[in-house]
Structure formats: structure tokens, C-alpha cells
Amino acid sequence: MCPSYLGKTGAQLFGVLGKDGKVNFITPLTVTEEFLELNKKKSNLEQRFRFTGKCAEKGCSQWNKEESKCSLSQKVQTLEKDRVQELSFCPIRSQCRWFFQDRENACFSCNEVTRNMEELLLSI
């Protein structure tokens, strides 16, 4: 599962951005048309929520074809933020592409990430 998915019908909502700027993970909820309708007038969904869905692998611009893995996981790990050093609750860890690739190292900065950061990380 991709931990940096788009907020669209059928995706799983698994995190909510807190006032402290960190993502608080929740038990996943399936995104419905009603949820999208209720939130369409507010700022970009991906700036406020974390979504997961099936990893597109080669169909995604973040896929590193040479290494056959997601390049975004490594970029997230280089963030100069307040990295935690112990694993916290994550409802998708057992299915997460980043965890599968990079184990615990992928988790330490994960709650710092919202999908709008992807544009910033693409320049790294």
C-alpha cells in the first residue's frame, strides 16, 4: 500500500493532520463520495489528511525503475524534522510499501508527511 495516496473515492483515510503539524494515525476509513463532498470547499485534502491505496509501482512518477522501489520513502527519511526514534501506532505498517522497503527507518519521519510535501521532495 502507498502511504502517500490521493484522497479519492475508495482510498483509505488513515491519518489526520494535528494542530502541531504532525499526522495522527487512525484506524483506516474508506473514502466516500459524501466525505469528498463535505470537504471539497476546504483546502486541499492531502494537506489535512493522509490516505493510502494500492501502490501503482511503475505507474507512479515516484517509482525508481532501476531499484524497483519507491523513491519517496528515502526522500522522506532525509527530512530535517523532529524524527522519532521509536515506532508509534501505524494502521498500515504491515502493508506499507515504505516499511516493506526500508523497515523502521521509513517510519521515523512518516508522521511529518502530508502529500502536498511531495512537490517539495521531488526537488531533492
Rank of each mutant, 00 (worst) to 15 (best):
S43M: 06
G21P: 01
L17E: 00
L13W: 00
F100K: 13
Q77K: 10
K54Y: 03
P3R: 05
G15V: 03
E119S: 13
A106S: 15
D20N: 15
T114P: 01
T78K: 14
K65W: 07
G7Y: 00
C96A: 11
P91R: 08
F99N: 03
F49Q: 00
Y5V: 04
D20A: 08
N105S: 09
T114G: 04
T78G: 05
Q101T: 07
I92W: 00
S123E: 14
V31N: 00
I26A: 01
N24V: 03
V23P: 00
N116W: 06
F99Y: 15
T30C: 03
T32I: 07
S4C: 14
T32S: 15
F89W: 09
E34Y: 06
V84I: 14
Q12S: 11
Q85Y: 10
E33M: 07
C60L: 14
V16N: 03
Q47A: 15
L120K: 14
T27C: 07
L45W: 01
L36M: 13
D102R: 09
L120G: 08
L79I: 13
C70I: 14
L36P: 04
N24E: 03
G10T: 03
Y5H: 13
G59W: 08
V16E: 03
L29C: 08
P3I: 05
F35D: 11
Q47K: 12
V76E: 02
L6C: 09
P28W: 02
E37G: 06
L29N: 07
N116I: 12
C70E: 05
